[in-house]
Design a protein around this nucleic acid. Structure first.
Lengths: 238, 238
DNA sequence: CAGCAATATCTGTATATACATATTATTTTT
DNA sequence: AAAAATAATATGTATATACAGATATTGCTG
């Protein structure tokens, strides 16, 4: 079966035209585009079809519209950063050389700071979990994880030999939003020992903090310490 | 003037209802929502109005729709990471204690790697610019910048005393997209000298690489080395 | 019971229309 | 000339309708 040139809907054709005018600079930033009725006449379509093209590009941030005034080419205002957070653990699991060591898991009373971070109102306990992830028996990530007991009550029943805590949580309660924070740190002596880091130059780590949300609630907080040599946020650049 | 409770459009009310069903877990992932005609009947609106509610939530990733089959509660598939890249230089400029030193600017032939990164087809030169940004006369960021000469021909005419290169580029050609890459590095002896870093523990830096796009073209590539103490990606977490 | 055809359902595209409301331009009035 | 009323224009919301195309279900047939 040969895939023939597919017929695009009319609103897509209009979108292409609008995008072209913007990307070539024919319509500079602030330029007032044709109005819905005029676009409709130009392309011999109804106003609602022309409207759809304008609306979708506006939703996408390319245009900006104000009732009564018109539609204008928007300044690409807040830079839409594309960042890819590489999940080292997930990548290692795919290669098949992954293993881990559960260093500890217990239900504890959260610190005041943790109570604020996780938006816990009562004196509800949290699961605190320490785990070392390895690739080819080489320490890769030292992770500290706090989990909302209300959202994952059965967490301590898991062994995490085959499924990581993150994968388990993603299974029972997928995140709807994630906040990240990243910084360079010098690991503590204990962390250096757990990561079997020796000496000077190698003691350079990244710490990746992560907060996973499930709608209005905080599901988990994670702090991962990773030897800098392993970590790179994004790739192929420089 | 007292702001009275504003009257929401009907499609917004339907969206609220749908969101509520999803967020409370009443409708689990994979649940089939009422169809457009049924929703329309439930809320006594036309099909097009009910459709708008479903469509907008689908655009937002909350629902997933397939023609002929129906509308389903989507798994919050690819985690939408919210990361804030703090512009240290911009922040310093706002405080008023900002200054900089232009270490060099010249038009050079790009390396093969740079040609690939910037998608340059010909042997067109690029502007290469080295700059040290300071706050209260204290080295903050050591930036190396490559700029597409075709998109900013007048760049070398600038002095950058009042306007940084980044601000100038944003002025003449705002980016439509930005890629970031972040890693922990140990600065070279030369970089340590330029950042006036002394001794052991302080020689811990973050390197933030950035590629700015203007539609299909690459506008600039930037590599900034920042003492780790100054940098934190995001805040308020841990 | 398996395979196929007919049918019902659902989303996707498109039009024509109506009215509301915000903004801008024009005209009239003071 | 300044201020106020008016008109024209633009987007926002909503409905009713029509048909196309994709998918699932039902019923029929061998």
């Amino acid at each position: 079966m040969v895939k023939t040139a597919l017929k695009l809907p009319q609103y897509e054709l209009i979108k292409q035209y609008l995008r072209h005018q913007i990307e070539t600079g024919e319509w500079p930033i602030g330029y007032r585009t044709p109005s819905e009725p005029k676009l409709a006449e130009q392309f011999s379509v109804s106003r609602m079809t022309a409207r759809r093209a304008l609306q979708e590009l506006a939703d996408q941030g390319l245009l900006s519209r104000t009732a009564g005034s018109g539609t204008f080419v928007a300044k690409p205002n807040l830079q839409v950063a594309s960042i890819e957070i590489i999940d080292l653990v997930e990548r290692a699991r795919e290669t098949g050389y992954y293993s881990n060591r559960l260093l500890g898991i217990e239900a504890v009373a959260p610190s005041r700071q943790m109570t604020e971070l996780m938006l816990l109102d009562s004196k509800q306990p949290v699961y605190q979990l320490n785990m070392l992830h390895l690739e080819r028996n080489c320490p890769l990530v030292l992770q500290q994880l706090w989990v909302n007991t209300a959202l994952a009550p059965a967490l301590p029943k898991q062994t995490f030999k085959k499924v990581t805590p993150d994968a388990y949580l993603d299974w029972i309660a997928p995140s709807t939003r994630v906040d990240y924070q990243l910084m360079a740190v010098s690991p503590s002596p204990e962390q250096q020992h757990q990561l079997t880091l020796t000496g000077q130059g190698s003691s350079l780590c990244m710490q990746l903090n992560r907060r996973c949300w499930r709608h209005q609630q905080v599901l988990s907080i994670s702090a991962s310490v990773i030897p800098a040599a392993f970590y790179q946020l994004g790739h192929n650049l420089l």
